[in-house]
Write a protein that binds this DNA or RNA. Structure first.
Length: 484
RNA sequence: GCUCCCAUCGUCUAGCGGUUCAGGACGCGGCCCUCUCAAGGCUGAAACACGGGUUCAAAUCCCGUUGGGAGCACCA
């Protein structure tokens, strides 16, 4: 073991399940932010001991998720499977040093003795039957157990919870190697963390009560344990554990639903951590202000409404070239083909960006712009409400006014609307009442977009262009006439 | 069952003994703006789980109750 310098080193150690869980994503975010905040390194280690499930494929989900969130790790990705020989070596050393021993108690015997204890009302920890037998390697099927001290506190000052720990007497001699020869998780993490020079472990609270075991292993190995901090879990609606069925738990899922990494990162960071009243955090602000002191002690529910709000916030404030990169794939999916990003599209998205809640919605709202004029389907309800026979004359006048325009900009379009309104109001009778902008704009909106919602009508028409606007108005007028 | 952890508006939270009849945000209601939908502005309702202490003074400290969560494997 090389003596490592005092640089802060945190880590994230997921098992490769094919996707990144939001709880995992958050502890990764915290570990990353903490390392960045204090000039340390953030290491990624894949816990791929379960060789059946661990494939390149299943790792990718986790790795892609981290990348997407903008959580960059330092150095190469470490893999637990690569450390197997090292785990064995440590176990052998502990055996030789008399700090661990072989245990030949079968599961059946163990279960029986455990039941007897419980029947007597005693608590059960392993009864140390084999502890002093000193069985050799040829003792047959056996596991290896760590000798825990009889008494003494296995404690630490948790970065979040403060003084924590348990007396050694309450903990049984834990198994560190299975009868098939493979090392157990507790042994493996400790060894891996030591070898990677991890000196600050930030992990989920579900590990809190297991920590004393691991401290015992550090003690047996004669290595100073890292600083430890446990962050409370994210729970689902009504405070229950996140469930795959009920709750959206994979980062990928959010990505597909059109959430931005900026929003996701901001949201996750703010669950269980705060910085005064601040709600919006850029990546830089996270890495400049994150601390453990303000991590909450209680588990928190994932509040989707807030994510939506954050997403909308970033949708309307991020630089346009970023929005372009984010939304393009969604647009292509929406129309089922490649999409050319041109000035008109850029103008439209810019005009519309404060309305959609997700990228999916943003793409849906731009769909009408990307369709051929003849392929535009008019929403039936909207047509029935806004494209009635009595509006046709005004639409015709407007179409003609549009067709005659020399320039196609906000001012000229507005002028055309005004002149048509004036003309209408001259022609209309007393009982018909005055025609206002709303009465005209809405039918136009339905005619050119196919639906009742869009950005300001002038902007919408500008994005569509003069020729296409005229065509779509004509199509709508025809449709009205055909129905009459 | 045993061990450990937790407890402020519906939700995320600020608060680290007095300046708080508890502040912000999301969501919800109302009003304004308005060519639709949003956005924005103003505004309203909404919480210290309960019971005991300690103290001149408690959301803040201590104890109990209740309620939640996690861990107790030859899983990770």
């Amino acid at each position: 073991m090389t003596k490592l310098d005092s640089t802060l080193r945190t880590r994230f150690a997921p098992s490769p399940t094919g996707f990144l869980h939001i709880g995992g994503a958050r502890t990764a975010l915290f570990s990353w932010a903490y390392a960045r905040r204090f000039g340390g390194k953030f290491i990624l280690r894949i816990e791929d001991t379960d060789r059946e499930r661990s494939t390149e494929e299943s790792e990718r989900g986790v790795i892609d998720g981290l990348r997407w969130l903008g959580i960059q790790w330092d150095g190469e990705i470490a893999r637990q499977s690569e450390a197997n020989a090292r785990h064995q070596e440590v176990i052998e050393d502990l055996l030789t040093a008399g700090k661990a021993y072989r245990c030949i108690c079968s599961r059946e015997e163990l279960e029986q003795r455990k039941q007897e204890h419980i029947a007597r009302g005693d608590k059960w920890t392993y009864d140390r039957k084999c502890r002093d037998e000193d069985y050799a390697a040829d003792c047959g099927t056996h596991v290896v157990r760590l000798k825990l001290p009889d008494t003494g506190m296995l404690g630490w000052v948790d970065g979040v919870f403060g003084e924590s720990g348990q007396d050694a007497s309450e903990i049984g001699d834990v198994i560190i190697r299975r009868s098939d020869g493979s090392p157990l998780y507790h042994l493996a993490v400790v060894v891996d963390d030591i070898d990677l020079g991890i000196n600050f472990v930030i992990r989920g609270q579900d590990h809190h009560s297991n920590t004393p075991f691991q401290l015992a292993i550090y003690q047996a190995m004669g290595v100073e344990p890292p600083r430890l901090a446990h962050v409370p879990l994210i729970v689902g609606k009504n405070g229950k554990k996140l469930s795959k069925r009920r709750d959206p738990i994979s980062v990928q899922q959010f990505q597909e639903e059109g959430y931005l990494p900026e929003a996701m990162r901001n949201w996750l960071t703010r669950i269980g951590w705060s910085h005064g009243d601040q709600e919006v955090f850029s990546s830089e602000e996270i890495t400049q202000t994150f601390d453990l002191e303000h991590v909450n002690h209680s588990s928190a529910q994932a509040d989707l409404e807030k994510l939506v709000w954050l997403n909308q916030h970033y949708l309307k404030t991020l630089p346009m070239d970023q929005i372009r990169d984010y939304v393009l794939p969604f647009l292509e999916k929406e129309v089922g083909g490649s999409v050319q990003w041109d000035d008109a599209l850029a103008f439209y998205i810019e005009a519309d960006r404060e309305r959609p809640k997700t990228l999916v919605e943003m793409a849906q709202r731009a769909r009408f712009l990307l369709l051929d004029d003849d392929a535009l389907q008019i929403d039936e309800k909207a047509a029935k409400k806004h494209l009635k026979a009595n509006i046709a004359p005004a639409l015709e006048q407007l179409r003609d006014a549009f067709a005659a325009l020399g320039a196609w900009d906000h001012e000229s379009i507005e002028g055309a609307f005004q002149s048509v309104l004036e003309q209408q109001n001259r022609e209309r009778s007393e009982e018909q009442g005055e025609m206002k902008m709303g009465k005209l704009a809405q039918p136009v909106r339905v005619a050119v977009t196919g639906g009742p919602v869009s950005p300001g009508i002038h902007e919408t028409l500008m994005a569509l262009g003069q020729e296409r606007s005229v065509t779509r108005l004509s199509n709508a007028i025809q449709a009205i006439r055909a129905r009459a």
